[in-house]
Write a protein that binds this DNA or RNA. Sequence first.
DNA 1: TTGCCGTTTAACAAAAATGTTAAACATTAT
DNA 2: ATAATGTTTAACATTTTTGTTAAACGGCAA
Lengths: 194, 194
Amino acid sequence: MAQRDTGTEQLIKDTAKRMFFSEGKLHATTQDIADAAGVNRTLLNYYFRSRDILFEQVATEARAEMSAELDFAFSSELEFKEKVEQLINVFMDQAMKFPYREMYVVTELNRTEKVVPEEKKNKIRQFLKEINAEMEKGKIKKMDPRQFLMNLFALMAYPLITNCLNKSLYSINDAEYHKLMKDRKKLIFEMIYQ
Amino acid sequence: MAQRDTGTEQLIKDTAKRMFFSEGKLHATTQDIADAAGVNRTLLNYYFRSRDILFEQVATEARAEMSAELDFAFSSELEFKEKVEQLINVFMDQAMKFPYREMYVVTELNRTEKVVPEEKKNKIRQFLKEINAEMEKGKIKKMDPRQFLMNLFALMAYPLITNCLNKSLYSINDAEYHKLMKDRKKLIFEMIYQ
DNA sequence: TTGCCGTTTAACAAAAATGTTAAACATTAT
DNA sequence: ATAATGTTTAACATTTTTGTTAAACGGCAA
C-alpha cells in the first residue's frame, strides 16, 4: 500500500497550534486555519473529520506536551533547588514559544468540565511535600506550599500571556521583550528561592 | 414621553459581563447570553443593534473599569508602601469577582490591534519612577522596575485566572479557594515588599 | 376609552461556519 | 501504460449564528 504522507495533516495541526498557542487567536475558524496553512479547508475534514475532533486533538496534545515538561522537571532526581531551576528553564522556554497554550488548556477545562486525572494530582501532592520539606529545612520562606506553587507559575506564565499588552505599555519591541523574559528566569529563581 | 426603562438593557450587559468575566465563557453566543439573562434574543439586537456593538461596549466598559481601579491606586496621595497595599486590595477584590476580565481585555487587544493610549503609558511611567525611587532608597529589592510591576500583577492575577484548575488540582471548594486568595493579599505584599 | 409609544415576541431572512460528495489529480506498483 | 490508492479540489448541503420585520403587548396620558 502506498503511504504517501505529504505532511499536510501535521501542517494543519501545527498551524492550528501556532494560531492558538503562539498568536493567541482563540477565535480562529477552520477557514482561518486552512488559509494560514495554505491548504483547502476541506482537508481539515478529510484528515480530522470535524472541527471538534481537530480542536480536541490539538488540546489533548497540548495537555500531553505540558504534562511531559512538568513531569520531566517534577520527577527528576535532582535536589529541590536544581529541580526548581530546571522547571523554570523548561517551562519558560516553552511558554516563550507558546505563551497562550496554558491559557488555552485552562479555558478549555472551563468549557468542557474535564477533571484532572488522579495520577497528576498525586505528582503535585508529591511536589508539595518536597516544597514543605524545603521550608522545614529553612531553605525557602515558610508559607502554604500551594501558595508557593501558585507564585512560581504566576511569575513564569503571566508576563508571557500579557506579552502584547506589556510590549505596548513599555514601548518595547520583540527583541527587548525577549531579553526581559530571559532575565526573568534568574529573577524568578531569586525571588522564589530567595 | 414615556421612558419606561425596564432595566433589560442593563440586565443584558451585566449578564454578558458575568459570562465573560466571571465564568470565563469566552465563546458565548448571543443566544447563550439571552438564555442566561432570561430574555428573548431579539432584545440584544433591539438594544445594541448587533452582537459586535454589544461586545465592544462590554469590552470598553471593562477597560474603563480597570483603568479606574488602577488610576485610583496609582495616583493616590499615599506613600509608596501604602499605595502598593491599596493596589493589591483593590485589584484582587475586583479580580476575585471578575477573574477573566483582564484576560478578556488582553486577548481583545490581541484580536483588534488596539493601542494603549499615551496617557495611560504616562501613568505607568510615573509609577515605574516611583518604584525606582523606592529601590534607590533600599526599601525594595533592586531590579528592573518593569519586572517588579510584572511580578506584582502576575502574583495577583494569575491564580484567579487559573481558579478552576487550582481548585481541581488541590481538591478544594469555593470557600477554601476564597480563603486562599484572601490570604494571598498579605503574602503578595510581603513577597513583593519584603 | 383610545391612541401613543416603548418593549417584547415570533417568524422569517441572511450570513457565517461547518460538513459532504464526487470528481480531478498525482504517485506508486504492477 | 494503467490500475490502484492516497491526496486535493470545487461545488453543494447543512447547521449554527446573527440580523430584520411586523405584529402583539402593556402601561400611561389625553
